[in-house]
Design a protein around this nucleic acid. Sequence first.
DNA 1: TGGATTCACATTGTGCACAATTAAATTGCT
DNA 2: AGCAATTTAATTGTGCACAATGTGAATCCA
Lengths: 154, 154
Amino acid sequence: MVQQDPALALDNQICFALYALNRAVTARYRPLLAELELTYPQYLVMLVLWEHGGDGEPARVSDVGARLRLDSGTLTPLLKRLQARGLLTRQRQANDERVVRLVLTEAGWQLRTLARQVPGRLICGLDVEPQRLIALKQELRSLLVTLENSEPSA
Amino acid sequence: MVQQDPALALDNQICFALYALNRAVTARYRPLLAELELTYPQYLVMLVLWEHGGDGEPARVSDVGARLRLDSGTLTPLLKRLQARGLLTRQRQANDERVVRLVLTEAGWQLRTLARQVPGRLICGLDVEPQRLIALKQELRSLLVTLENSEPSA
DNA sequence: TGGATTCACATTGTGCACAATTAAATTGCT
DNA sequence: AGCAATTTAATTGTGCACAATGTGAATCCA
């Protein structure tokens, strides 16, 4: 039981802290999102589509993928499930049959009203200084940028 | 494209920063762990088993689960894959047939030698102040504790 | 002691993630 | 014009996560 190598101690791995907290936070979202009948990744996709708006050109699958860092292998079936629920339509672009445009339906937009309550309710149940969360978010985002802009060397 | 509700803006969600960074970090580990023919969750399980040591009683499935916050639905197939690779054995405890004890094989222990290089190589390729990572890790761990000790209220 | 409860793990089913491949359409180049 | 290269999604296959349920074993306890 004596750990001989601090470098391999689980509690010393940042990656594990990140992994465990991410799952714990997702678990917090789950009951809230269940009221919207959304999974957590589905919720993120809806955030992107709501943010993209209904005025300009509809978002493409690759737009959503670029925003969330997810590929079509993940998004295609997820989007089909959202479509099956009537939250959006997937239509091939006329002048370029390769691209699929994602258009929110009325139901998709209406879900936004319910979703508005989610962030607040989550923070409430958390009982943590908002400042602390904002600082953490900034740090996480900063590290993400660093990681994405550097080669995955050695 | 104009975001009308800051509360729903993707970039304001801590959860997304956490989710995206976690996947980016896991992606960094992937090529390193591929040399050991381990996935990231498999690597975490091996860390637990190495840490548990070979002197006392072998770890139970539930011990690993408690440490990693994973249930048997995730661990059972994962452990069977590690067993199929010859890294460990799974044996029912004689005096309590409910319990499965996990014993590392010689190959399982030898893999530890290779694994020792992983954390260092990852940090190296990261090019971030170690202090910053340690501080972040502490913050993540602290929040995990807070989350686990509070009710998942509304 | 016997019956209900709890415990430890396994199984089943759904939904991500991601690598690798495929396929169709567009663009670039000469 | 015509062919290669690129772009955009979809498909296939593997491996987590996790809810729900099942199964057998141990425990509680009236």
